[in-house]
Amino acid sequence: MSKIHVQATVNGDSVEFLADPRETLLDCLRDHLDLTGAKEGCGTGDCGACSVMLNGRLVSSCLVLGVEAEGAEISTIEGMADGNELHPLQRKFIEHAALQCGFCTPGFLVAAKALLEKNPDPSESEIRFWLAGNLCRCTGYDKIVRAVQDAAAEMRGAA
């Protein structure tokens, strides 16, 4: 099958790649753009490890075709910190030990950031339901929820 040229913006940089029409956005990010921060845990939209922002919407990049990214603005975990300045969520995940193996962490961070942009003061149950699309097999979620709560509080204070 012939490949299709795709031009997009990823983490503020303009990028180009050739996508096979069968490749997902996740494949393209990982294999064509060397952005391996987004992970494939399932490939069926059930684990959230591949979460990225696509034109301001939180998506599972394993459910988006690479060719759909034409002209899109994408942000991934690699663009979350501002240079060496970590996003408060990233700092709080480390501080609260909200990761064990860390494989789910990029997806959780991207999803949690999307939540806090919509709702700066989520309740515990709002956090749990928002993050219900992200699987973590290691932590039991307790420390993840607390890290998000703490980051939200800090960001509200900072605003």
Partner: peptide
């Protein structure tokens, strides 16, 4: 004590290299 884990930064920035990476 509970200091930050040494591999924390790699794991919150997407830099840590897992099997498929």
């Amino acid at each position: 004590t509970t200091p930050d884990r040494p591999d924390g930064l790699d794991k919150v920035t997407g830099r840590a290299r897992y099997g498929a990476d």
